[in-house]
Lab assay of single mutants.
Amino acid sequence: GKELVLALYDYQEKSPREVTMKKGDILTLLNSTNKDWWKVEVKATANDKTYERQGFVPAAYVKKL
């Protein structure tokens, strides 16, 4: 199945390749080969529509579930 990670801290994206997350968010882990930056998929809701974004977050800010 898919691997999930838990956001340990809030993170505000600093570039278009990154994604914003809030502490407590559960994210889908896409790639953890880089030890510093993990690629995740974030589900977000805006205007009653759910959309998914993929991007990088600092590996130290998340932990595998």
Rank of each mutant, 00 (worst) to 15 (best):
K2L: 11
E3I: 14
L4C: 11
L4Q: 11
V5M: 04
L6E: 09
L6Y: 10
L6C: 10
L6M: 14
A7C: 12
A7I: 03
A7L: 03
L8S: 02
Y9E: 07
Y9S: 08
Y9Q: 12
D10F: 03
D10S: 08
Q12G: 07
Q12P: 05
E13T: 07
E13Q: 13
K14M: 10
K14Y: 04
K14P: 04
S15Y: 05
S15V: 04
S15P: 03
R17E: 12
R17S: 11
E18T: 07
E18V: 05
E18F: 06
E18M: 04
V19A: 05
V19I: 14
V19T: 05
T20N: 04
T20I: 03
K23A: 13
K23G: 05
K23H: 05
D25Y: 04
I26T: 07
L27V: 06
L27S: 02
T28K: 12
L29P: 00
L29H: 02
L29W: 00
L30D: 01
L30K: 05
K35N: 09
D36K: 14
W37F: 06
W37I: 01
W37D: 00
W37T: 02
W38Y: 07
V40I: 05
E41D: 04
E41R: 09
K43E: 10
A44K: 12
T45G: 11
T45R: 11
A46M: 13
A46C: 14
A46F: 14
A46D: 14
A46E: 14
A46W: 14
N47T: 09
N47Q: 11
D48E: 10
K49F: 12
T50A: 11
T50L: 11
T50G: 10
Y51V: 12
Y51N: 09
E52N: 15
E52P: 14
R53M: 07
Q54H: 09
F56T: 02
F56A: 00
F56Y: 15
V57Q: 01
V57L: 02
P58T: 02
A59Y: 04
A59E: 03
A60E: 10
Y61F: 11
K63D: 06
K63S: 10
K64D: 04
K64W: 07
K64F: 09
K64N: 06
L65C: 14
L65T: 05
